[in-house]
Design a protein around this nucleic acid. Structure first.
Length: 424
RNA sequence: GUGGGUAUAGCUCAGCUGGUUAGAGCGCCAGGUUGUGGCCCUGGAGGUCGCCGGUUCGAAUCCGGUUACUCACCCCA
């Protein structure tokens, strides 16, 4: 096994790329701040049972995609495959719902799922998600759509689409489930193999199957929205009304169901036309039963998760998130005698003032050092030769226009004024 | 878990139907200016041709296997 290759489905984020992440992370914090969401950091791993209960035993994630291991204390531990269940666990455990509601929280970090990697899908991937707990106000559902849209827009992303649906509460869904099963059952023989399995376990999943023969049958299946109870129907229509008020365009998709068991009522998904087959850049919905399911008080909640890797991929494909080139404020060129010591001393002082200072470590020719300074995109170069050093002077060269001037070496402040003004 | 594509220098890739010292561009280092970057010119370093096996006088090239990457299915962010 090669020590020099990373595990399958993982990525190194190297200099030149990490800056894009930093920029995006800054935008995430900004938009969360604007909507009043606060960060909550949970462990990377949790008790396996949290996900079994939270996400649902029969979901693909729990059945075949979790990184699960037994630790030395013989506890079953799982690397988190998603962020909502851990956040809800932390909400309950820290009694965060004891004050004014709703409580608005967000998370950001790596998630793990054992899947075959492909474009926009990795075994370790990064999700940003946020959750509003303690209110069933449809306006919060709408803000859960508005927030990521603000984020996408602030990144300059275009070509994304919001799909919306309501899958009702437990009661309207159980009625609908029966209707749906009744619709598909006569056609059971014509369904694909995985759908035949879903027919009784989770008939809602039949609706978004991509196999053509299944789509034909699903085409005139009853729609969930026609089976919503009065409360859920009212909630859903209010969601749409708020969306209209905020000028957010969306597409109603009665076949949109989510892969995690905890969702109720509103569900939504944002897809990007800039991506390949894995085109969802964010998805979410309401989950009014999860907090109680995990042992807390009955607490309605709604949330959304953004696939950060995919968002970055979409932006890259669109040529967005260009970086402004940065470079050292000053490159110290030294040659001979005590000049390197002087350069080291100067660097120490200037770095202490927060300036990015570079110098040559290989005692190369002045030409080589100038070349290096240029390659690093240095704003200024300070040339310290033996003659100048004897007079306590050096030549300061502006790499932008080639202008040179003589500066006194014992007047650090003068250097800082000139060089520091150019930014760091 | 299933299927397709790919694997040659740090990077992007040539290398035709098997033939002798495996190439280009970019990047890197040095020189052209014994103290001045970008442009140009010259030179240099750098390769287990993914790995294992087979066919052959001879394999980067053909065959089998394997691993990795990649795209798609499934599913999902």
């Amino acid at each position: 096994m090669a020590l020099t290759s990373r595990p399958r489905g993982t990525n190194d984020i190297i200099p030149g790329e990490i800056e894009l992440w930093h920029e995006l992370e800054g935008k995430i914090r900004q938009v969360c701040h604007a909507y009043g969401y606060h960060e909550l950091r949970t462990p990377i791993f949790e008790h396996t049972e949290l996900f079994q209960r939270g996400i649902g035993d029969t979901t693909d994630i729990v059945e075949k995609e979790m990184y699960t291991f037994v630790d030395r204390g013989e506890r079953s531990i799982t690397l988190r495959p998603e962020g909502t269940a851990p956040l809800v666990r932390a909400y309950i455990e820290n009694n965060l719902g004891s004050g004014a509601l709703p409580v608005k929280l967000y998370y950001y970090g790596p998630m793990f799922r054992y899947e075959r990697p492909q474009a926009g899908r990795y075994r370790q991937f990064t999700q940003f998600g946020f959750e509003a707990l303690g209110s069933s106000d449809p306006l919060l559902d709408v803000e859960a759509i508005a927030l990521p849209i603000d984020l996408y827009k602030s990144c300059g992303l275009s070509g994304f689409q919001v799909e919306l649906n309501s899958i009702g509460c437990a009661e309207c869904r159980s009625v609908y489930r029966k209707e749906l099963t009744a619709h598909f059952e006569p056609h059971a023989d014509n369904l694909c193999r995985s759908c035949q399995g879903r027919l009784h376990r989770n008939p809602l999943r039949l609706l978004d199957c991509k196999v053509e023969s299944c789509q034909v049958i699903a085409k005139d299946a009853p729609k969930i929205t026609e089976y919503l109870c009065p409360d859920c129907a009212d909630h859903f229509s209010q969601v749409q009304k708020y969306l209209d008020t905020l000028g957010i365009s969306y597409v109603l998709n009665p076949r949109l169901v989510r892969g995690l068991d905890y969702y109720t009522r509103t569900v939504f998904e944002v897809t990007s036309s800039e991506l390949g087959s894995q085109n969802a850049i964010g998805a979410g919905g309401r989950y009014d039963g999860l907090v109680q399911e995990l042992g807390g008080k009955e607490t309605p909640a709604v949330g959304f998760a953004v696939g950060v890797d995919r968002l970055l991929l979409a932006l890259k494909n669109q040529g967005k998130l260009q970086l402004s080139p940065s470079g050292p404020a000053l490159y110290l060129v030294h040659f001979g005698g005590e000049t390197k010591h002087k350069a080291a001393e100067l660097a120490q002082g200037l770095r202490g003032r927060g300036l990015w200072i570079e110098l040559d470590y290989a005692d190369r020719s002045i030409k080589a050092q100038m070349k290096a300074a240029n390659r690093l995109n240095s704003q200024y170069v300070l040339i310290i030769g033996e003659d100048e050093l004897a007079k306590n002077q050096a030549v300061l060269r502006n790499m932008g226009d080639g202008q040179e001037e003589s500066v006194a070496l014992d007047e650090l402040e003068q250097l800082i004024t000139i060089v520091g003004a150019c930014g760091k």
